[in-house]
Design a binder for these strands. Structure first.
Lengths: 303, 303
DNA sequence: GCCGACCTTTGACTAAAGTCAAAGGTTATG
DNA sequence: CATAACCTTTGACTTTAGTCAAAGGTCGGC
């Protein structure tokens, strides 16, 4: 997980557990209760997840339901005139569920109720307290999400690895004035380690380690899925790559980045990297960086 | 709720709602799943609530269950050898449920699992992030609890009012060197308004308003249940009392406090009160305070 | 010592949630 | 183009969860 895993203190565990209990028993129950109202909770949740439309396959994995059970529930919603089920154009094995106007109306009502619940809670606080709460809640969610993400090495040719690289290439192609092609990626055989970050089975980030020589490793293709940004996942991937490099005996890591990726350059600088002259002729690179690896793979002054 | 209720901004509502959703779906589900494991969730929860022992009556209100349903579930746990049910000594209408050694072992296992869950989450974070998370979580819980508390006027002779005053008197009797007797309380006929704070139907604080004359009201018996301290409920009760006084046409509020209640005195000072000479001969009073009420009942510089 | 208020148990149900396996259509892959 | 892998539907269940009302002790107050 973390370069130097430290023992988790009991006080932190206690606080988090107490919060879990408080929240699931009080607020969670309220939330579900308001969401459901006249409808069995399962159906209400399903309608909510269908949202603007989704395939049954997606719903099944998102909600973790039995295929038969889901099929019947969708059928029930259809009978009530809340959703319409169609065959997926392009893959007739799949079914698509979409809300009808009546379904959309019910969703809007669900939304209104959930808003009311949140608003009712906030109304009991002063404006200052509301700001505090909003901030604390955002921090909590951000860190819990980050904590729930696991990073692990996968084969460079695995589906998740390829999906990440595709997302990476597509994004760079959009952001680089000169564009970016799949052929600009490191060929799989040069990849020593391919790390993928998973949030709930979904690949939401990656990073690649290549050996330049015994002494030096290069980090490439560090990427975080747009929906997982702002959590601090980039830093975590970077740290794990450094840790991995150190574990493989390298003493130094290098990397480069494009001129337009200002955030990336900033992250490397605060992460203990110093700018160095070009060490290769990567046509997309604008800055080259280097960082010495301590024995524990931890930079001085990080975090 | 609050002296000058301000409109709740949509951004706050959105953040809180997003968090509700994230938390109940991700963490809450996990929590329940780990708690239950081989056992129906209802039974697992019940065993948890029984803890070191509880009366069925208590369990029924705490879990909000139907009496018949509860009776059967307890019976089921008894059959599995996890709890023992005995008649309450002193009131044979009540039944007490206590865990057997096997039940205690299962509870310990539940605890271990919940700890593991929390620890597993925290392990993915750096120590700094753990501290941040713990702090954010504590703030969130504190403010959500405070927000969920409702304050409302009740008859001064109601059971809740009397229970609060009993708690108040018992605490002062312990803290005041000279002691405190129930006869030192304001007689009910002098009480103009009796506010009680409720957290989930439970009275967790109170405050009393007496009219000294048309111009001036006196606040007395401001008290917060020990389990509801640290939330900011004292301030909130104070603000509501001031608001009520202003609504009844008073221009000034007064109050006194004992020398040993340093926290109380500090709260009054930061709440806009200034110390004044003794305005009565209350033998327990060490400080006397006064505060002018603006038209909206809001002090300059509060919060 | 009687009455009403309480607490619990039991019987009789209902609805929701979830499981399992067989079967039928569709699509990728070799 | 056959076959394995998928996705969904259907039938046949089981378990949980929850409700309602009747009934039988027990306690507090008059």
């Amino acid at each position: 997980m973390e370069p130097v895993p430290s023992p988790v203190s009991a006080a932190h565990v206690t606080t988090l557990r107490g919060f879990n209990r408080y929240f699931t028993r009080r607020i969670g129950v309220l939330d579900d209760h308001y969401l459901g109202q006249d409808r069995p909770l399962g159906e209400a949740r399903l309608l909510y997840e269908i949202g603007a439309g989704a395939s049954l396959r997606e719903l099944r994995t998102r909600l973790g339901l039995d295929a038969g059970y889901l099929s019947r529930m969708v059928r029930a919603l259809e009978k009530q005139g809340l959703v319409r089920v169609t065959v997926h154009p392009g893959d007739s094995r799949l079914r698509l569920a979409e809300p009808t106007p009546a379904g959309r109306a019910e969703l809007a009502e669900q939304n209104r109720r959930a808003d009311d619940l949140a608003e009712g809670l906030l109304r009991g606080l002063t404006e200052t307290q509301r700001r505090q709460l909003t901030e604390a809640v955002a921090t909590t969610e951000r860190l819990l999400r980050l904590a729930a993400i696991t990073v692990r090495p996968v084969p460079a040719t695995s589906a998740d690895a390829r999906a990440c690289l595709a997302g990476y290439a597509a994004e760079l192609d959009e952001r680089f004035p000169e564009g970016y092609a799949a052929t600009d990626l490191v060929p799989p055989e040069r990849i020593a380690v391919f790390l993928v970050a998973y949030e709930e089975k979904r690949a939401v980030g990656c990073g690649v380690l290549c050996a330049l020589d015994d002494e030096t490793a290069e980090i490439r293709h560090l990427w975080v899925h747009p929906e997982a940004r702002g959590l601090g996942l980039g830093r975590r991937l970077l740290a794990e790559l450094e840790h991995t490099a150190a574990g493989r005996g390298h003493r130094t890591v290098r990397l480069d980045t494009h001129k337009v990726l200002k955030e990336a350059a900033a992250m490397y600088r605060t992460g203990g990297y110093t700018q160095i002259p070009a060490y290769d002729d990567n046509p997309h690179a604008g800055y080259w960086f280097e960082k010495p690896l301590g024995p524990a793979g931890k930079a001085p002054g990080t975090h």
